[in-house]
Amino acid sequence: MSQLPGTLLDGLIRGLAYVGIALGLTIVFGMLRLVNFAHGAFYMIGAYVGLVVTEHLGLPLGLIAAPIAVAIFAVILDFALLRRFYDRNPTAQILITFGIAIVVQESLRLIFTGTTRSYAIPFWLKSSFNLGFTQYPTYRMIFALGIVVLIFAVWFFIERTNYGLIVRAGIRDRTMVQLLGGNVRQASTVIFALGGAIAGLVGAGASPIYNVDPNTGFYFLVPSFVVIVIGGLGSFWGAVAGGLLVGELQSLTTLISAPASDIVIYVAMAIVLMVRPSGLFGESELIRG
């Protein structure tokens, strides 16, 4: 049981990483009704851009470059391809975004090879922090704090800004927003870029912990989909609660059986869907759902 505090903290960190990825998935689904399997590719691009920039210019600039690069990529992708699929059925959306994810993954494998890479982070970040009951790596603590700040920044943007108001209205009734003169297309692009930027930032931020190879995108994407299904598709706080739940479940299961940790989240998802078919936080409502 001496492992328990550390395991719980590991679960929290993993859960927060899921939250970061799931937030982008859920706001994009809420606003664009797009099931985006390319979201893991955004995480990957962020991770690799962060890796290269960190090697040459240090981690802080790596963390700035990653979300910017992914946001630009997301906007280009949206204009060139995805906006033709907004109103298509989910199968078409899954096929096209899954295709994009594979193209990105294999392109990154061509450029960076398949080897696992680790970030060069400053020495002091590699140290441990004494929490009283356990020693815990400093970088992980900073990462957790960063994700919490990110969650509230996204919440503030959606709930407290004028642009967020257009987004919340657009989630409910895109036609009426247009009838009032609102630019739904632009808002959709902004949300898509924002979702991508968040995934890119989390990709660069999480890679010093989990390292990076071309498969990491899917490694995080699949549990993140479980997270938003458990939390309720399109629900903001559902993504937060679902992410933490999935992270802790996985982490705690490793105490009993490491291989079972990959299965337990699907069991949890099945139970939640049986009890509450629309997820823990109900219908797709971005903030208050």
Binding site: L165, R168, A169, I171, R172, D173, G182, N183, E285
Partner: peptide
């Protein structure tokens, strides 16, 4: 009528103000 049911009355009006030319 297509009121945004997820927004308050005040937010419905504010939205129309924001999106107005």
């Amino acid at each position: 009528r297509r009121i945004f049911t997820n927004l308050t009355v005040a937010e419905n009006l504010k939205l129309a103000q924001i999106t107005a030319a």
